[in-house]
């Protein structure tokens, strides 16, 4: 039986899962993720993490606890810098994540830890990281190279897929790993995207709401009270930041006198600006986590922008005590307001 590598199903999962899945599977490992977040994971996380950490970090602790006894290695990439701009990095909690986990959870299996650091390692940072992983796991060079190329190709496909089909990562995983026939033309092109937008906006009854926030919050259905599916049930077409191609996002990077320091936060702010500009979007929902440091800044910036532009805006903050009902009532009220606004 091949050795098992565990990957917690939170934080970078929604962004890089295809890459690592293909890479490790090609190297001949079994790549397992933890279960989607549930009560037990949340409780374990709260128990293990420091009390004032934000909820995603607590969840990460919980996911590691869930994997702990089942796998031979736990894979925790240390996200440092993957953007073109050198000073755009990740939240300090991402930077210190492997160290945090090591200090707060005992009896762990070995942690596979690599830095994704474009700033110090240059353009080939991902290749270098993969080579290092291969060396740590004792795999021959040519095999690693082959796996790396295949993984990168697949990841690219995944990202294009999100942008061209305008679907969420969760849906994309379903397509990519279960229903392979449907993945044909995934290349991003302008025309097709316009067609998708037209198709979605032509339905009279549908509202179009942009849901912005970090992928590990809005796609984690347990912690976000399943906001995406709830909106869908209410005849709302959901738009998220992954659906906007990077080339378009970048146009908004000069709106602020200074770029934010965090990869995800920048994307959230730019995507918000983008969606506020789009005539087919009816409203904006920002999902943030209690105690999230960057979100305190991001939330305010987005809120003020919406205020200037007179654009409907709802801020939802989730924490470990949030009840579904409370959030759902607020979202329903928001939807009602938008529908009323349309007819008025």
């Amino acid at each position: 039986m091949p050795p098992k590598i565990g990957f917690p199903m939170t934080l970078t999962y929604f962004m890089h899962f295809p890459l690592w899945k293909i890479f490790f599977t090609e190297l001949g490992f079994e790549f397992v993720t933890s279960q989607p977040t549930n009560k037990l994971i949340l409780n374990n996380g709260i128990k293990e993490a420091v009390t004032d950490a934000c909820i995603p970090i607590k969840l990460f602790h919980g996911h590691v606890m869930a994997l702990k006894s089942k796998v031979d290695y736990i894979f925790i990439p240390r996200m440092v810098n993957i953007d073109k701009e050198k000073h755009i990095t990740f939240c300090p909690k991402f930077l210190g994540l492997p160290d945090m986990i090591r200090a707060s959870i005992s009896n762990l299996p070995p942690i596979l830890e690599i830095s994704l650091d474009k700033k110090n390692k240059g353009k080939l940072f991902l290749y270098k990281a993969c080579r290092l992983l291969g060396r740590q796991l004792g795999k021959p060079f040519n095999k690693v190279l082959k796996a790396y190329l295949k993984a990168v190709k697949f990841q690219k496909k995944f990202e294009n897929f999100l942008v061209s089909k305008k679907i969420t990562p969760i849906e994309a995983f379903d397509y990519l790993f279960k229903d392979k026939n449907r993945v044909n033309n995934t290349k991003y092109n302008r025309k097709q995207t316009d067609r998708e937008i037209n198709k979605a906006t032509s339905l009279e009854n549908n509202l179009n709401i942009a849901v912005v926030g970090y992928p590990y919050q809005i796609y984690d259905s347990y912690i976000s009270a399943d906001i995406i599916n709830f909106l869908k049930k209410n005849n709302v077409r959901v738009w998220t930041m992954e659906m906007v191609p990077y080339s378009i996002l970048k146009r908004y990077s000069n709106r602020l006198s200074k770029k934010l320091f965090w990869h995800f936060s920048n994307k959230v702010v730019w995507a918000s600006y983008h969606y506020i500009d789009q005539p087919y979007i009816d409203g904006l929902i920002h999902v943030s986590a209690f105690g999230c440091g960057p979100d305190a800044m991001v939330g305010k910036l987005v809120e003020l922008e919406c205020k200037y532009r007179n654009f409907p805006f709802l801020n939802i903050t989730v924490d470990e005590h949030t009840g579904d009902a409370g959030i759902k009532t607020r979202i329903e009220a928001f939807i009602d307001m938008l529908r009323y606004r349309r007819t008025a």
Binding site: V50, D52, P92, K93, M100, C292, G293
Partner: peptide, 16 residues
């Protein structure tokens, strides 16, 4: 300060 990001990381490590 409450919600200070670097200090939370430090806090969880300082325990050890």
């Amino acid at each position: 300060p409450f919600t200070c990001i670097p200090e939370i990381v430090a806090k969880s490590i300082i325990g050890k």
